[in-house]
């Protein structure tokens, strides 16, 4: 993919994710069920994934994203994704943390770290987020 195409794709992803945030903010105290499709749409766009991805597991979504961009299998990613930072976090965790923080910042909320870390699936996270809105 050319550099220009990459930029175009990132711009499009930004627009989609901004639209998903906007949709959530337009609702008054949205429920988990109302947050969920927009949160999923937000994450898929941030991770440059399309609707064909089936999993609802947050870390697996990130793995799909990284392995796709690196053009390696998720199995290979499990083996190679070692910590590259002094706090011993693999890229799956760093990317997920950044995406969640960005999402919460856009919504204007601060989710408790332990509540966030207990979220395994997009649905779990949608449930937590909905309580802060």
């Amino acid at each position: 993919m050319s550099y220009l195409n990459v930029l175009k794709r990132l711009k499009a992803a930004d627009e989609v994710s901004a639209a998903e945030v906007k949709a959530i903010l337009s609702m008054d105290h949205p429920s988990e069920g109302q947050v969920y499709p927009h949160l999923r749409g937000y994450l898929l766009s941030r991770f440059l994934l399309d609707d064909s991805v089936q999993t609802d597991d947050l870390k697996k979504l990130v793995s799909s994203s990284i392995s796709k961009s690196l053009e390696i299998s998720e199995g290979d990613l499990d083996v190679t994704d070692l910590s590259d930072r002094c706090i011993s976090a693999p890229s799956v965790e760093t990317k997920l943390a950044l995406a969640m923080l960005k999402f919460e910042e856009a919504l204007g909320i601060k989710v408790d770290v332990m509540e966030r870390v207990n979220c395994v699936t997009v649905a779990d996270y949608a449930g937590v987020v909905s309580r802060y809105l």
């Binding site: 706090i87 976090a89 923080l101 960005k102 966030r116």
Partner: peptide
């Protein structure tokens, strides 16, 4: 020299989020 990253990666919230993930 012993703190790496850029943008949000340098925020306290990011450190705490990762700490929580690693701890978990």
């Amino acid at each position: 020299p012993c703190r790496f990253g850029a943008g949000d990666e340098l925020k306290k919230e990011y450190d705490l989020a990762l700490d929580a993930m690693i701890y978990d």
